[in-house]
């Protein structure tokens, strides 16, 4: 479904502050894979997402999405097949527009056969039905401005918007890190359910080692722009949090250094 072939990226090339963020990185994801990604600060986790999403063009290598070469496709043209969530819950929604307008923004885009007179009642019913699956009571607040919602509600809404038209790949960049623990668990559970229901190919960056192992079918560890560990299946099922940390130390010759890392095993 998604393939990165020998991708490299250096920021500030040719200056003293040059930083190789991706170093000849190759990765292949099968359809329906749910990959969790962990790594130290500056390991290149978010850079991989930016490369896939098209925030910048890579220096070398090729990126394929569902068989199509997207290496040089501009960001907004890839966006149709990529769903993205960021740590900041404010990033994925328009605060001064209502809940239904936010949903319509992504939905009407994909359905050209729409009424020119805005949102129809049929679409409204569909939005209500979708919102009800979030269990946040948002289905009764279609006309509320999104700016009035809490961070958790906005992130849940963003998740719904990103997956309403099933994307070819869903990129989650620490999307629960800015939420309180209870809300984070709720959004994570929603993520698990939506991804499973839609069989969506997903990559999730997390600093919670516990959820990295608990969610998905594959875990990748990154260091200095490279993948240093890639576990799945039987091997991953047997892995515990301490073992994973030990593996990281072995592979990278340093301790996992992330000031926000969470070692909870739940």
């Amino acid at each position: 479904m998604l393939e990165l072939r020998h991708v490299s990226k250096t920021f500030n090339k040719g200056t003293p502050s040059a930083k190789q963020a991706l170093n000849d990185l190759s990765l292949h994801l099968n359809a329906g894979d749910f990959v969790s990604i962990i790594g130290s600060n500056g390991a290149g986790k978010s850079t991989v997402f930016n490369a896939i999403g098209g925030s910048f063009l890579v220096d070398a290598g090729r990126i394929f999405l569902d068989g199509q070469d997207v290496t040089f496709l501009p960001e907004h043209k890839r966006a149709g097949s990529i769903g993205r969530l960021f740590q900041d819950p404010l990033r994925g929604t328009a605060p001064n527009m209502t809940i239904e307008e936010n949903l319509a923004l992504v939905y009407l885009r994909a359905n050209k056969s729409r009424s020119i007179f805005g949102i129809t009642n049929k679409e409204r019913d569909f939005f209500r039905e979708k919102l009800a699956t979030l269990n946040l009571g948002l289905e009764d607040r279609l006309k509320s401005k999104v700016g009035l919602l809490s961070g958790g509600q906005r992130q849940a809404l963003t998740l719904l918007m990103a997956t309403m038209i099933t994307p070819k790949v869903l990129l989650l960049d620490e999307h629960t890190a800015a939420l309180d623990p209870a809300t984070a668990d709720k959004v994570l559970e929603l993520t698990r359910r939506i991804v499973a229901d839609g069989h969506i190919t997903t990559m999730m960056i997390t600093h919670n080692i516990g959820s990295a192992l608990a969610l998905g079918n594959r875990t990748i560890m990154m260091n200095e722009g490279q993948i240093i560990l890639d576990v799945s299946g039987e091997e991953r099922a047997r892995l515990t949090v301490p073992e994973l940390l030990e593996l990281f130390r072995e592979k990278s010759h340093t301790a996992l250094d992330d000031d926000r890392i969470l070692l909870r095993a739940d």
């Binding site: 960001e75 907004h76 043209k77 890839r78 966006a79 149709g80 993205r84 404010l90 990033r91 994925g92 929604t93 328009a94 605060p95 001064n96 527009m97 307008e101 936010n102 319509a104 923004l105 992504v106 009407l108 885009r109 729409r114 020119i116 007179f117 805005g118 949102i119 918007m161 990103a162």
Partner: peptide, 22 residues
């Protein structure tokens, strides 16, 4: 209120969102 108008309105509100809705 049309689809196009919604995108125009979202542009001033959150350009990231517009880009991410292709």
């Amino acid at each position: 209120r049309s689809g196009l108008g919604l995108s125009v309105r979202a542009t001033g509100d959150n350009p990231d969102l517009v880009r991410s809705s292709s």
